[in-house]
Amino acid sequence: MSESIPSPHEHIVFTEFDDTEGVLVDLNSKRYYTLNETAMIIWRGLERKRTRTEIIRDITDAYDVTPEHAAQSLDKLVATLRARKLLPADGGQ
């Protein structure tokens, strides 16, 4: 898995309900998705163009989890976001 993760598409709007739940709205497909607390940390990292290593550190700083486990969870979520076309398939916009 490469260090660089693509930033979210411009047409995906993220709204944070509170610290525990957020919503992504795809303005093109007119569909929305909910994110749990951990997924929100990852999405915020993607929006801020943080590297994979930095996002893993964000997760391990906040949660009782090993870097290896956090990395696996990050990669799995990124794959899901790509499958739902919420992230570009490769680096860049």
Partner: peptide, 21 residues
């Protein structure tokens, strides 16, 4: 040792905005 227990990150299945409204 104060960190929160880890919960796997989850993105829900898509919901059609028009259906919801």
């Amino acid at each position: 040792a104060d960190k929160k227990p880890f919960v796997e990150p989850v993105v829900s299945v898509p919901v059609d905005v028009l259906e919801a409204t």
